[in-house]
Nucleic acid binder design. Sequence first.
DNA 1: GGTATAGGTTGACGCTGCGTCAAGGTCAAT
DNA 2: ATTGACCTTGACGCAGCGTCAACCTATACC
Lengths: 256, 256
Amino acid sequence: MDRSIQDIARLVGTTSRTLRHYDRLGLLPPSRVGSNGYRYYDDGALVRLQRILLLRDLGLGLPAIADVLDREAEPARALHRHLELLRQEQERLARQIASVSLTIRQLEGGEQLMAENMFNGFDHTQYKDEVEQRWGKEAYVSGDRWWTGMSDTERAGWKARTAQLGADWTSAAEQGVAADSAEAQELARRHCEWLAGVPGLPSSGSGSSDNGPSKEYVTGLGDMYVADDRFGANYGGRKGAELVRDALKLFADRNL
Amino acid sequence: MDRSIQDIARLVGTTSRTLRHYDRLGLLPPSRVGSNGYRYYDDGALVRLQRILLLRDLGLGLPAIADVLDREAEPARALHRHLELLRQEQERLARQIASVSLTIRQLEGGEQLMAENMFNGFDHTQYKDEVEQRWGKEAYVSGDRWWTGMSDTERAGWKARTAQLGADWTSAAEQGVAADSAEAQELARRHCEWLAGVPGLPSSGSGSSDNGPSKEYVTGLGDMYVADDRFGANYGGRKGAELVRDALKLFADRNL
DNA sequence: GGTATAGGTTGACGCTGCGTCAAGGTCAAT
DNA sequence: ATTGACCTTGACGCAGCGTCAACCTATACC
């Protein structure tokens, strides 16, 4: 009545290695072990194996399967939890697919679309004159190289990260957060951190630990946000831009 | 101008461990390494890192990212391939979700967990011999689609027929009908007919008009009914299961 | 100069679910 | 006895780092 490990494996369409694996995990011990060490499985073990494989096909992990089978935990509850996970995973995938599709469209859209994207995110070249005036030609050149040197893909990613910051600023502005509030100051900190990710900006300190943008740069940037509607649009309109400017100035005064 | 590993890591929102990992993979070597072994990154490295993280967020693996960045392989092509993978994964997830949902509904519908699943063609195809080994996963998939693709009325009808068959087997067993009796053999015929309605089952005829289940499949199924109490429960307990098994074997020997 | 603190370095294990050798016993048949 | 099929127990590999561990370095304060 007992069957060898291979017999069982072929019967259910798996491998002997898997069965040994399950044995070691304690998930499916053989019903009998010969004096030679051979594993033998009876019908009971076979049934258990079927259950295991069924649950596995449903996507449950081996520990979860052991839980359901051994502790008689109500399968429905476990499956409900599992379903939640699957749904989340599916959503994550859907978002990823959307991102990839968007990126592809942008890539294939050519230069035109690129320009629009650049403007949408943070078009450094658009402000060539201002940047040059304030920070000199080198700052502009290196910044421009950085930006134009990016592929469309990268620009899209930069845009995405920037968008999160913009969204946070916007919601803060809508909630009437004060510029000197902890929340706004935290946003300001993130904003500076984000700025530091842009190479070629004038740095305040030469030390490695403090290399954010300079105080002047940050305050000037805030002014620019207010002065230029295109910037403000990314931060919740005029009110948002003013919040950004004020919060940045406070933050710069205090920390830079 | 160079920044330490921690600076860079915080800048882009990752960890120094990750950067070391990328270094070891050759994906992102530091722009400079101090005599003390410290890694330093310049703007170029920062840009590259941002590209890496963007592609990673899109779900690409590190080798694929290296491909895109180093070999100047057209990103669009790589992304198209990647998109294909993502879509497949999403479909797989969708099927899994459908399966889990179905299982939950069945559980909450009140009856045996695995039994009905197996009837649906989910799992009992695993009782296959070597020749039929290529069935299985595919049977699972098509079985799932078959079931979830049915309308409610269809499902109800199928369930009713299944239940009727079970009831008839049970009453036959209770009346002590013999496996080789005309009555039991008629039930066996109905049983095979019913089986033929489940897609993805190994068929006896390779291309013939006779596409019922194979002889081996039917006898194996009978063995399973006896081996597994949950099946037996649908056919009047152990006695019922044994009747089904014996009758099926006889029928298979004679007619398949 | 000593020391506290923060940050740097190179290993190396852990996690998931097995696939895939490697080296060597066992069994049934020739 | 030999062959060939099957069995056993390790142990590495994969993806992408997290997480110690053990041990330098840099900076700053007293």
